[in-house]
Design a protein around this nucleic acid. Sequence first.
DNA 1: TTCTTAATTGACTAATCACTCAACAAATGT
DNA 2: ACATTTGTTGAGTGATTAGTCAATTAAGAA
Lengths: 187, 187
Amino acid sequence: MDKRELLLEAATKLFVERGLHATPTSAISKEAGVSAGILFHYFKTKDDLIDKLYVSIKKEYTSYILHDLEKVNSDLGKLRLLWSNSWNWALDNSLKYKFLMQFDNTSASERVKNHPEIIAKYEMFGTLIQEYINKELIKNVDLTFLMASMMGLITSMVTYLTQFPEKRQDQVFIEQAWEMYYNYLKP
Amino acid sequence: MDKRELLLEAATKLFVERGLHATPTSAISKEAGVSAGILFHYFKTKDDLIDKLYVSIKKEYTSYILHDLEKVNSDLGKLRLLWSNSWNWALDNSLKYKFLMQFDNTSASERVKNHPEIIAKYEMFGTLIQEYINKELIKNVDLTFLMASMMGLITSMVTYLTQFPEKRQDQVFIEQAWEMYYNYLKP
DNA sequence: TTCTTAATTGACTAATCACTCAACAAATGT
DNA sequence: ACATTTGTTGAGTGATTAGTCAATTAAGAA
């Protein structure tokens, strides 16, 4: 398997488990089952690894949010899919999601937020949301706020469903979750 | 001024600014304007400092949430104060709040979450919320979920109001914020 | 005042850690 | 086949850093 990928995976696990400061690069390469030196073949520095990891996860997340969207016709249906994509990804990738949350609260994320590919996804997402706002399907709030609130609600879900995983199958719960979200957004 | 306090303040600032892993203890003592050695007089290790910082901030936050609650009569008024206390504190202490967010997403927080004083505050908060649930003032969800969702919504606010601070004075906005929260919680 | 304890300093040390590099292996191209 | 690039290793290095400690000062008690 691709060693770069192995390294990123190992790093995600250890960073969330121990925190950035308590995870030496040697631990990462050990966890990944590769030599210590190879890490610096794929990543210039430790900070570079961290930045690349952030970008890669953020890209995966933002891509998944828009996933299968064209298969739905109605606007409300699209919005609902947007939302469920978002929290399904978070639940299926809780480690990665936790890393995002952790890193987003550091100024270090400023270094990296302006990455072109992420900006592109945001813009796509942004025009879509703007369309919904124009159609008065949702409240007129700025995109940052909307993303942040989505993340906020999803974080609650992830926390909750990590504790009670069986609830995730519950159709009533899913419906409630959606209502909660939409209540929050509708004009 | 108390040097222990100075150290904790400096640490908060630097941790949020640079992240835990990029903040040496020497930088903390320098920022605090004290000698390098004194840090280890007040804190056994760097991790001990981090843990103590977390507990101290969490204590301050949970205390402030319950602040002035006895001055309000109606249940709904109390709930509203609970909420506004919570986000006012977060906005007035955004550095501390960001540190909490950052650290809560690390397993390191497990070491420290069971601190008796924090648990005590949670219990107080918990019985209060249980009362509201019994009175059917709010939905019957578990406390973890409720706290998490509150944090989630507040995080959105903090993100938003950091960008547009002038909105904070806006009465309409405050009213909307409350409605959003209550919509989310009412049965 | 004198004695005892606590606070404070900063040079020092032992350990850790990010990162290098020379050597080798594998793949790729010609 | 040979040459060239690319991937991989792990021991080694220099810098950084967490944490110590002997010495000094300040505070409190008697």
